[in-house]
């Protein structure tokens, strides 16, 4: 299966990439290509031109900056899995399979905002910040404002997600996932994090048009109450031929209870 024809360009630095994007609005960024190429092969996406950012070294790797971890957007799932980051390594281990993890990137996944992707729930629970650069300079977007809709993140055309900043406040964390047996994507995934001030943040993915915080769960746990059921309303969820909205709502309850139990 060949994708439709396109022009191919490469950038070696963020500045070069932003200049190229500013000059040619037809350019579509390709990182690991593990969401984009499958879509292009199925002709669900037909970008007239690609900008390959794989060679941008300043967007790779994990460093510590005071009370934050800084993760380059183009760090592969495999490198995240092997890292000392809070929660993300556990989540990366759930992404696809070893070959997908060698090529796909954490930033590609988060910019893409696939409703069944794993990282968005973890990003919400960790309370990360996204560093985005565009023609107007650099801006920072909090996880709560990052995921805007189905396949819709705060990253705009002409912009690059360059880094993810994770506050080093995690005391305990867990990710529980019910995965699709063939695609390996999340049918439902629930992430919970207890932060240094003892507050718990929780979020789910896979069940709705985008990842959401689990407010009911957070309120209960932060108020020292037992984990309730009926955390999400099936009416707010999506159903498909793999799992109905009602079943997904049930999975959120089950996975949330397991994740909270693991926090100890």
């Amino acid at each position: 299966m060949y994708p439709a024809s396109f022009e191919y360009h490469k950038a070696e630095s963020v500045d070069q990439a932003l200049a190229a994007l500013a000059e040619n609005p037809d350019l579509k960024v390709i990182a690991g290509g593990h969401s984009l190429l499958p879509a292009m092969k199925l002709r669900l996406a037909q970008p007239p031109a690609l900008l390959d950012i794989w060679g941008i070294q300043e967007m790779k790797g994990i460093t510590r900056d005071g009370d934050h971890w800084v993760v380059g957007a183009m760090t592969t799932h495999a490198d995240v899995l092997r890292s000392d980051l809070p929660l993300f390594p556990e989540v990366a281990g759930w992404v696809g399979d070893p070959m997908v993890r060698n090529r796909g990137t954490i930033g590609g996944s988060l910019a893409h905002a696939d409703p069944s992707a794993d990282y968005p729930a973890a990003a919400l629970a960790l309370g990360v910040e996204f560093v985005i650069r565009g023609p107007g300079g650099e801006r920072t977007v909090h996880a709560d404002d990052m995921f805007q809709g189905m396949f819709e993140s705060a990253v705009q055309p002409g912009e690059l997600l360059t880094h993810i900043r994770i506050p080093a406040t995690t005391q305990a964390s867990a990710y529980e996932k019910f995965r699709h047996p063939a695609s390996h994507y999340a049918v439902v995934g629930v992430a919970v994090v207890r932060h240094a001030d003892s507050s718990v943040r929780a979020a789910y993915t896979g069940a709705a048009e985008k990842a959401h915080r689990l407010n009911k769960l957070e309120d209960a746990v932060n108020g020292s109450q037992a984990v309730p059921t009926g955390l999400v309303d099936a009416g707010d969820l999506l159903g498909d031929r793999f799992a109905s909205a009602e079943y997904r709502a049930h999975l959120v309850d089950v996975l949330a209870a397991r994740a909270i139990e693991r926090l100890g």
Binding site: G33, L37, R103
Partner: peptide, 16 residues
């Protein structure tokens, strides 16, 4: 194997 890492060559462009 691409530079030592196992990858799915149906999900990579030759130019990449």
């Amino acid at each position: 194997h691409l530079n030592g890492d196992a990858v799915k060559s149906c999900t990579l462009l030759a130019v990449q």
